[in-house]
């Protein structure tokens, strides 16, 4: 099946085409490949902002208020809200739209809910595809929202240029989550609901943690490079109230500061390089897994190996090596 017609419409900024292409990319990895293949050269214009935080930290309200500001600046905004799929039933309940202000028109704000369909890490397999589609559709900014609850939900930093982590006063668990992994991926900590008691306490908790361990997101991005100059970004902390919009100037300033940092230090190039590596790795994993699964269920040679392992005349490691040989990628 060709998608030329839809892609043509996408390039002209057609909303329905964008929506349908995301659906297709979600449902069929083969089709996703075809779509990305033809639109990739048009990507790279959108600024990608990741927002994560525990349930109830006010992510949707924050995004809603931020989006309002961006729209007033004349920008076109794409929002992708990723929620978990139930491992038992495969279903998902996606309720993030409720809190998004409804006075957004379709012309300048595109909101899409996405279930992660069992992928670990906080994103769905097709999230990166959807980002690219919205980029080509004409969004100046793409905001990705994920539920960040623990150390395993940190994948948001892969596609996002700036990562915001939301915290609320009072909830003690989030500090634990930060220690366990969120710390390293965060560019800006946002303490929401600043009017609640305990907001200052939360700020000082984060400050203390930051002193103990500097962000190594950018170290990591330079890991495999010889003579890399390591530019450090010290994560910033903002207190605000996303319902009233109080202190949003402050947040915008810091986002811009971070954008400028990425550009001026050249970190953005490292960042792109790593993003491509990571993405390729993800795609390879997906493809190889599918290929191996297909092989295991259909290849008589492998049935033979399995019998040998059952007889204890071979061990699973040796069998795996033989399968890699079969795949021809040794």
């Amino acid at each position: 099946m060709g998608f030329e017609a839809l892609i043509d419409r996408l390039l002209k900024g057609d909303t329905r085409a964008a929506a349908r292409l995301i659906t297709i990319a979600e449902n069929d990895i083969g089709a996703a490949e075809e779509i990305i293949n033809s639109i990739y050269k048009h990507t790279g214009k959108a600024y990608i902002l990741g927002i994560t935080g525990a349930p109830g930290s006010g992510k949707s309200t924050l995004i809603s208020t931020l989006t309002n500001i961006f729209v007033k600046e004349g920008k076109k905004v794409g929002i992708i809200c990723v929620d978990p799929t139930s491992p038992l039933t495969g279903g998902a309940l996606l309720g993030d739209r409720i809190r998004m202000k409804k006075h957004f028109t379709t012309d300048n704000v595109f909101i899409r809910s996405m279930a992660n369909r069992g992928q670990l890490g906080g994103l769905a397999r097709a999230t990166e595809d959807a980002i690219k589609i919205l980029d080509v559709y004409g969004c100046d900014i793409v905001i990705i929202e994920t539920v960040g609850v623990g150390q395993s939900e940190v994948d948001i930093f892969r596609p996002a240029q700036s990562v915001l982590v939301l915290l609320v006063p009072g909830m003690g668990d989030d500090i634990q989550a930060i220690k366990a992994g969120i710390m390293e991926i965060t560019d800006i900590f946002v303490v929401n609901k600043m009017d609640l008691p305990g907001a200052d306490r939360k700020v000082s908790d984060i400050t203390q943690m930051l002193e103990l361990s500097m962000s190594f997101k950018y170290d990591y991005e330079n890991l495999n490079q010889d003579h890399a100059i390591v530019h450090k970004w010290t994560p910033k902390i903002v207190k605000l109230n996303s319902k009233t919009g109080e202190n949003f100037d402050n947040l915008l300033e810091i986002i811009n500061e971070h954008k400028a940092f990425l550009k001026e230090t050249g970190v953005i190039e490292n960042y792109r390089l790593n993003r491509i590596k990571n993405e390729t790795l993800q795609i390879l994993k997906h493809k190889l897994t599918r290929k191996v699964e297909g092989l295991i269920h259909s290849n008589p040679q492998i049935d033979e190996y399995i019998r040998l392992v059952m007889d204890k005349s071979m061990d699973p490691y040796s069998m795996a090596n033989l399968i890699i040989k079969l795949l021809g990628i040794e």
């Binding site: 109830g56 309720g95 993030d96 409720i98 809190r99």
Partner: peptide, 13 residues
């Protein structure tokens, strides 16, 4: 409403 504002609830299932 101009003085008091309005109220939105979070989604609860």
């Amino acid at each position: 409403k101009e003085v008091f504002g309005t109220y939105d609830e979070d989604s609860i299932f």
